[in-house]
Simulated assay, not measured.
Amino acid sequence: MRRSLLRAAPLALAAMLALSACVPSEAEGDELVGHVSVTSFEVAGPVPAPTGGINRAGSARVPVRGYEPVGDVQPWATLVWAHGGSFIRGTLDWPEADWVSRSFAAAGLRVISVDYVLASDTVKAPAPSNDVAAVVAWAGAEYGGPLVVGGASAGAHLATLATLAQAERAPERAAAALLLEYPTMHRTQRVDPQLADAVAALPEARRFRADRIAEMYSFYLGSGLTDGGPLVVGELPADRLALLPPTIIVNADADELRASGEEFADQLRAAGVPVTERIELGTVHGYLNRPDESASAREQSAATMAHFVSELRRTLSL
């Protein structure tokens, strides 16, 4: 097992810290900010047209935002990224989408950030993951070079399902790596008394108690599922998890969902999938949505991004 608790190297950290000065914008059309080109467009979704009733299929068109390095820099991989938000909220302007994508693009990746349909009273699983999967399939066909998929929190869950869908439907363009930031993968995660003590003093808004996790998944999944219906990632059998590519996981420190990320890492290893883990010290869940909250937040967020980039280059042998 490889689990890193180290900060990024000083030079890499300094380079990533400079990215925090980039201010997210609406990204109408083409835009140049912080040596990154930003373009908003749409990708064909998993369904030809919206349907009535409960939508479990996805969207006819999926809004995305593309980020690319400018100048003579050629992207060394294409990353499809999904923000978090408990399956029910989040936008392309959230720092967890925009700031993260700019950071990856400044490090030389092409990033496609996905505005997947959110779960609601009329949208249920697997519609959100189907949207992400449609964008992954499009990116795999549109661009050459390594294909990478990633996401944060609930977005990490959706990214994993989309990665599996791509591996099963188009193995010749399967993702070469999977990036997971403080992922939630289980409706019922294993109990960790030590972690429970570490989060006991957190404000309630930052807590993910067992009942809150169960309610989140219950709303996302909805009722009336039949055999073969959508499952949560942590409940998939080992033979399906074995289809996943090498996976890089970063967990927040004082975060009850860390138990899910660590449990999922163990499941991947048992299925034969290479995994690296890191705990970003001093953080709580969702810290990449607050990179400018304080000097320490900037340092922690930059360290996470530098770690993802360095581990991804190592994984891809670049």
Rank of each mutant, 00 (worst) to 15 (best):
M1A: 14
R2W: 05
L5N: 06
R7H: 09
A9I: 04
P10L: 10
P10H: 11
A14E: 14
L19Y: 03
L19S: 08
V23S: 04
S25M: 01
A27I: 01
A27P: 01
L32W: 07
V33G: 01
G34A: 15
S37L: 13
V38D: 00
V38F: 00
T39E: 10
P46W: 08
V47S: 10
A49R: 13
P50S: 06
T51G: 15
G52W: 02
N55G: 06
R56K: 09
G58I: 11
G58K: 08
A60H: 07
G66H: 06
G66F: 01
Y67F: 15
G71E: 09
V80R: 06
A82W: 08
H83V: 08
G84T: 13
S86F: 11
T91A: 09
D93V: 00
D98G: 00
F104D: 00
F104T: 01
A105I: 06
A106K: 01
A107V: 04
L109I: 04
V111H: 02
Y116H: 15
V117L: 13
L118Y: 07
S120C: 08
A125I: 04
V132Q: 06
V132H: 04
A133P: 13
V136R: 04
A137I: 02
A137V: 05
W138Q: 06
G140P: 11
A141D: 14
E142V: 01
G145W: 05
G145C: 05
G145D: 03
S153P: 03
S153D: 12
A156I: 04
L158K: 03
A159I: 05
A159H: 06
A162E: 05
L164Q: 06
A165G: 04
Q166Y: 01
A167P: 11
R169G: 12
R169V: 13
A170C: 12
E172Q: 15
R173P: 02
A175E: 06
A176H: 13
A177Y: 08
A177S: 14
L178C: 12
L178Y: 10
M185T: 10
R187I: 13
T188Q: 13
R190P: 00
R190N: 01
R190K: 07
V191C: 00
D192A: 04
D197E: 15
A198P: 00
L202T: 04
L202K: 05
P203F: 06
E204R: 15
A205I: 13
F208C: 05
M216Q: 12
G224D: 11
D227M: 09
V232N: 07
V232P: 02
G234I: 05
D239N: 14
L243E: 10
P245N: 10
I249G: 02
V250D: 02
D253E: 04
L257E: 02
A259E: 01
S260H: 02
G261A: 05
Q267E: 04
A270N: 02
V273N: 03
V273F: 02
P274I: 05
V275I: 07
V275G: 04
T283P: 10
T283G: 04
T283S: 10
V284Y: 04
G286N: 08
L288V: 14
L288W: 06
D292A: 13
S296C: 03
E299L: 14
A303W: 02
A303Q: 11
M305S: 05
A306D: 14
H307T: 15
V309S: 03
S310L: 11
R314N: 14
L316S: 07
L316R: 07
L316C: 09
S317T: 14
